[in-house]
Design a protein around this nucleic acid. Sequence first.
DNA 1: ACGGAAACCTGCTGGC
DNA 2: TGCCAGCAGGTTTCCG
Length: 312
Amino acid sequence: MPELPEVETIRRGLASHIQGRIIAAADFFGDRVTRRYLPGPQVLADAVQGCRIHAVQRRGKYLWLVLEPPVGEEFALVIHLGMSGQLLIKDARHPAESHLRAQFDLTGGPPVSHGEREAPGATGTQLRFVDQRTFGSLTGCELIAASGRPDGVPGLIGHIAPDPWEPAYDLPAVVEVMRRRDSAVKRALLDQSLVSGIGNIYADEALWLARVHGERRASSLSRTVLARVLRAAAEVMDRALVAGGTSFDALYVNVNGASGYFDRSLQAYGRAGRPCARCQTPIRRERFTNRSSYSCPKCQPRPRSGVGAERS
DNA sequence: ACGGAAACCTGCTGGC
DNA sequence: TGCCAGCAGGTTTCCG
């Protein structure tokens, strides 16, 4: 799935295309995409219809549209891309994608491509949600107050911690929580309630940069080392954002269908058997909580194994 | 509070 | 050529 840099790339593209526009109509295909919205797809479609898109916001890997209804309070249309979700801006005449799960007809803005005008009777612009594996979801939610967030955050995002790009992100506080975690440091990095936005790719990249094996107990690492890991995560995600995110295939694309280029800059993730950029030792691949982890055997030695290892 | 596994899906790749 | 196992950027939930 898109991690923080990919989701932010999508957010920026979305904002430039749809902010200020009106949702004329919404269609959900099947009921799985709105499974987290208990009243069901029809109620959600009715709720968003006629709303103005006031802003496009993000925390970690969650995106939401701040919607202004003709009458009543602002609310959020919350979007999670799961493993394979895409948000695309398309002319309505463009044929439906094979895994199209939702579409929103937009009015009140510029046309999709330069030189085209929105003539009377012409089809307009659509925001489309395409999702092959259907782990992504769309849901409606009220906005609640949150520090550093003038528009608030969706209530159902309450358990998601600030990501490293938010003003409310407090690195020393995260370090203190991690120090008390008797779990693998990689698990802590992936815990969205501790710090959000980091997924499997950037966790491995951060650990490689910081020269720490992901199975080291967080509680066995010094404040200095934990801070180094967290700063490495922020740094590698900063650089990935500049490159437009990481694409391995057509599953991650921005709203214009373009890929990111950060895969060329990865130092560990997906590089099993290829030389470490620091010491030339071949990168190893290991299983970790039912997924793959990549690391340098020399720069990132495994913790001592055995009962009681790495415990204070 | 934490670890681990399973569940939720579709599609692609590599080995036999 | 076909079949099947394994794998993929994530989150939630349940069990111990």
